[in-house]
Each structure stands twice: as C-alpha cells, then as structure tokens.
Design a protein around this nucleic acid. Sequence first.
DNA 1: ATACACGCGCTTTTT
DNA 2: GCGCGTGTAT
Length: 748
Amino acid sequence: MTSIEHVLSDLNEPQRQAVTSTQGPLLILAGPGSGKTRVITHRIAYLVGHDDVAPWRILAVTFTNKAAREMRQRVEARLGDVARDVVLGTFHAICARFLRTDGQHAGIDRSFTIYDDADQVAVIKRVAEDMNINTRQVPERAILSAISRAKSELISAYDFASTTHEYFTEVVARSYERYEQVLAANNALDFDDLIVRTVNLLRDHAPTREKYQDRFLHVLVDEFQDTNIAQYQLARLLAAKFGNICVVGDPDQSIYSWRSADIRNILDFERDFPGAQIVLLEQNYRSTQTILDAAHAVISGNEQRKEKALWTDRGEGEPIVMFEAYDERDEAQFVAAEVASLTKHGMRLQDIAVMYRTNAQSRALEEALIGAGIPYQLVGGTRFYERREIKDVLAYLRLVHNPFDAVAFTRVANVPGRGVGEKTMEQFQRWAATLGLPLYAALQVLAAQQDGNITPEIARMPRHPLAARQATALRGFLGIIDELIALAPDNPLSVLVGGLLDRTQYRRYLFDEPGRGAGEDQQSEAEARWANVQELAAYAAEFDGLAGGEGLAAFLENAALVSDADEMAEGDDAAGRATLITLHSAKGLEFPVVFMIAMEDGVLPHVRSFDTPAQMEEERRLCYVGMTRAKERLYLLRAFRRYGGGASQHNPASRFLRDIPPSLVSARADASEPQEPMRYRAPAPRDDRPEVPGSDAFHGGERVRHPKFGEGVVVGCKTSGGDQEVTVSFKGVGLKTLSLSIAPLERL
DNA sequence: ATACACGCGCTTTTT
DNA sequence: GCGCGTGTAT
C-alpha cells in the first residue's frame, strides 16, 4: 500500500481527513483554490485502493462535462484503466443514461429526445398560441422559467395548478399542463425532466430503486452549492442504502440560484444527515495573499454567509490594478495593450483570461484583440450547437430517431426550401391538431388521402385542407425522412449523415440558396457553415463503432448535453491564445492573469439584480468567483461610458470595488452611491403527483410498438364485433390497419 | 395568395 | 441568431 501512503503524503491535514473519512455522510466546505478537485480524485483513489471498493460502485457527479472529464483523467492517472468503471458525469448525463435503461418503468420510451432551451421555447410558443396567451404581457421566457423552477423543486403540473391564485401563476399552471402534454406527445424530455423523472422513477419503482441503491456504495457530489432540490433529492435517494454520501461545495461560490440552485441544500444536508462530518478547506494554493484579501473583502459584504478564512503561504504578490477607461473600446484597448506588454515580459497567452458578465461584452474585446494581432479563444457566446446549420442537421437526425418530434419537424419541414411556407405549415398543423396526431403521423394520413388509399378509419377523418401543390411539397419532406429512417438501422452513423446531406442537398442549399448575390462575403459565409457541418459529420463518425440506432441515440444525447464551455480548448489547442469567458463559465478555472471588465453598477452587479438582496448577494459571489480565478495578477477595469441597450450611458463604479482596501490596489478611482433592495419570494410547497388514469381502448395519439413495424402512433380505432381494429402510423413504414387479436400492440 | 429575401433591433448568467 | 415588418417574386 505504498501507493496509498504516497496518495496521502501530498495532502494537508484537512484534505487528508476529507479523503480518508469514507464512512457516513461528509460535507466538505472548500474555498476557491483549496484543492477541491484533488481531494475528490484522491478520495476516489483511496476508496478503490484502500477500502477495496469496486470502481463501478462509486458514483461521482459533477456540474459540467468538462469537470467530469478532467476528474476522470485525474482518477485514471492514479488508478489506471479501472477508473473507466467509476460512474462519473453531470446530473443530466447520468440521469439520461438511467432513463434510457430503466425509463420504461416510468412510462418513458427509450428513444426519447432531449429538448434544449431553444426547443423548449418553440414548444411554449405553440402552447401560448393554442391557449391565447398574450406573450407581450406574459413572455414565453417567464412562463418557461416558472415551469423550470417548479420542476426543479419537484412540483408537478398537477400540484402547481392546485396552489395558484394569481394571474401569472394561473397562466403558468395552464401552460405547464399543456407543455407537459406536448412534450409527451413529442416523446421528448427537457433538461429538468431528466432529473425529475429519474427521481420519480426511483421513488415509484421499487426494483429500480433497489438496483441503484444496492449498487452505489459511495456517492460524491461536486459543486454542491449549485444543485437544486430535485438534484439533491436524487443524490439522497441514491445514497439512502449505505449512507456514504460526500458533498463538496462552497456557499460563497453559489452563482446559479437563477437556475434554481438552492443554498438550502447545504443547510438541509446537516439536518438530513445528523452527525455528518464537516471538513473545512481553507488553505489556498492558487492566489497571492493580495488577491485573497481583496476577494475576501468583497465577499464579506454578504450577510447570508458563514465565515471562512482563506490563507496562503504564497506571499503578497503584485497589487491589484484598477483602471477607468473612457468607454468600452478604450477599455478593450487597455486590455489588448496590457496583454501585449505582459507577453513581452514572458507571460504566455494561455495564462491570461478576460472575464465579463454578459456574452455580448466579448465583442469589443474581440475587435481590440484582433486589431492588436493577439490570438484568443472565445468560450461560450454563439455556440457550435446553436448554429443554424448545426441545428438543421441535428433536427433531421432527431426526426430519424424520433419522427414524432414536432419541434424538429417544424424546423426543417422547409429546409432546404421546398415550397412549404408559413401558411402551408399553419394549415397543416391545425389539421393535425384536430386529428389529435403528431405531425409525422398526420403527414402519413395526408399521403394516404392524396393517394386515394382510404381505409374506413381514414374515411371518417376530415380531409386535409391543403392544395395539391402544398400537399405534394410536404410529401417530399416525408419521402426524405422515411428514406433516412430506412437507412439508419443498418448503417454506421456517418453513412446516415452522408445520406442526409446528400438527399437534402444541404451543401447546395448553403451555397446556392442565398443565391444571386454571389458576393465574396456570402461565399465565405457558406464555406464557414459548410465547414461546421463537416465538423459535425466528423464528430458523428466517432460514433460509427456503435450499431446503427445506438450510435444515433448516443450522438444525439451528446449533442444535447454537451456545452461549449466543456469543449474549451486545453493543452496544445489552447497554446498561444488568451481566453475570453463569462464569469459564470469561468467557475472552476484558474489563470495566472485575470482581467475583469465592466466593473460597474448595472453590469456587475447586473441591473436585473437590484430587486432583491438575495440577487445582489449572488452578484457579489459572482464577483468573488471571478477574482479568485486569478493566481498572480488581477485587473479590475471599468469604463466611464458604455453602450448598452442602444444608448450610451454612464455607470457608476461597481459597489464591490469600494470594499477593496486601497492598500491592495495600485491605482484607484472613487465609487459612488449604492442602491437599496427589497422583498423575496418564498418557494411553493411540494407534494406528491396524482396517478394517471388508465383505459383499455386505444385512442388517437397514443404511442405503441409492434413487433414487426416498430414504433408508431395510433391514428384511429374502431370496434367491429368482439375485435378491435387499430390504424397506426409507423415510423418509416406508413399507415397500417391491424386487428388486435392477430397483431398485439404493446402500449408505450 | 403564398413564399421568400432583406434590414432592423434585441439578447444575464447555462446543464 | 431570431422575430418582426416590408417589399418583391412566383
């Protein structure tokens, strides 16, 4: 066991305690730079090496995919290949996996699609339209975030409806119910569902619960301060049998309460697990004492806080630099000039990061850096997976995987343009809605009607309202989808992607469609877009090893759950480039040199946080997170005037700057008056959800599976004599009318 | 009547 | 990058 001795020898005393206290609940409060990741990876190594825990019986949850990957690498460095067996990932990725394997016990189809933010907006838009909600008065975003908040507190649509008495929440309640129906009809889960449905699955299905509870001897949760109630309940459920739950977090770095992260989880932990050990990691190995003192001065302004005193033996270091520029361009030029000067003195570009509150602020910086010839990498911003061409291709792939996905359907039904305009889609959608069918199933009905392929079922349905030209245009789309569906099962994913690009003529669409201009700009834009598509195709090829359908499923899951911050360049790719990054994305990272720009009231703290003290405290934590990223040098910049929201305006210096003792700063300008905040809203209570009533007869829109034809949706159903005849729209097959006595259908 | 290109204004933070 | 309004093409 010399390797274990070795593992422990390079830890300080509290760290060692955090690593070796393997029995029972443990709360690790870890300040920034206190070796938190080290402690977690060492702990996993210790569990395997010293306690003889099988790696596959350890569950470690992180906040980002990037953190998960990094952790896996570091565990691998200690343990070798067995590290692969540790279950390690984000809450969302882990839950997605659980639901793919065991979701059927909670009525979840294996081929479910994961809806990202944009997909959710598309759904809620339709919902609002259907329900005559004025989205000027009640914006979609507001409805969506209320729904998300409810879900993250495990409040179902049913519960929500029963607790509401004001206009806004009533609108939300009605939308929530409808939203859930639409998601179900599309065979889709949103991000919150991944967690909520897993919690429900474990709670309601004993065999699955026991399977996972028996399996996970140890549960570790990183960034615990950023978990929401549903995530905490999930961790609790999973650790319930052995009680070995270790959570690591720092309340001072909680910056995701707007995403329903709940600081109460840390407080509740001590209540839920009485006698839990608590370890405080206060020695900082990252920053100079000057930086720590300044950061501490800022965070001390928060009242809702447990005191934690960071210290370092790294010495005082350089004073903090403050600078007031004239405007944002001037500010960006200061950054560029300073970066140039630092590199002249031996600093490497990859050691430098510029941080800001909102993504839009990267613009001026990019211009200045380009102007100064300084290479940079932009984290976040317009993300790869949010590009139009990428979303188009993904929408096609999603349809192949799950043709009942209405969001994907409407996105690409007319991409490339095939004469299916707004009016056509509107009429078609309305008709599909009166049939109560998914768009894909309705399109199959339409095809049958146009071909005069009329079964009694179809004869009873209203005929589609489209002109022949419109109907034919839509059928062209159906043809493509069905061809691709036929291609999918027996071919590697890259063949499917190739077939899709080929069949849709996507390249020609990119280069020709904007058409007649033929200017150089247009040409290069098309080339850039095509390059993105190629990149996506290359990425898809990495899934070729998996059998047809599995590759597609894994690829789509990845695309939905991976963010660009995860993809942040490291090692060779990062060499020679400065980093531009939001304060939120910067959490967990460190750089020798950090610039924080726009240190102004209205930006940091953000205007939208002036309403409540809780929000203001979160802004302060965000500032603290940014400052504590810096190892050696910290620059705090602001501008006299800034162009925000159309007009240029003057922002007072950030109130956070006033808390930094002048002795730590090399140059300083005065700050001005603060503003005072107000009330805050208590969360709604939680309760159990109702049982779904069952029925024997099949009804329209219901999802079924047939041993030969695969998955489908019931289009119509009639009883003749003792038998039931059901017409079903099958994925890639078309309409089939079946006698239940001959061909039993499995309800999904 | 319908489809589509183009210009304008807006965007807190993200799994 | 998206929604919206406007003008032009089929």
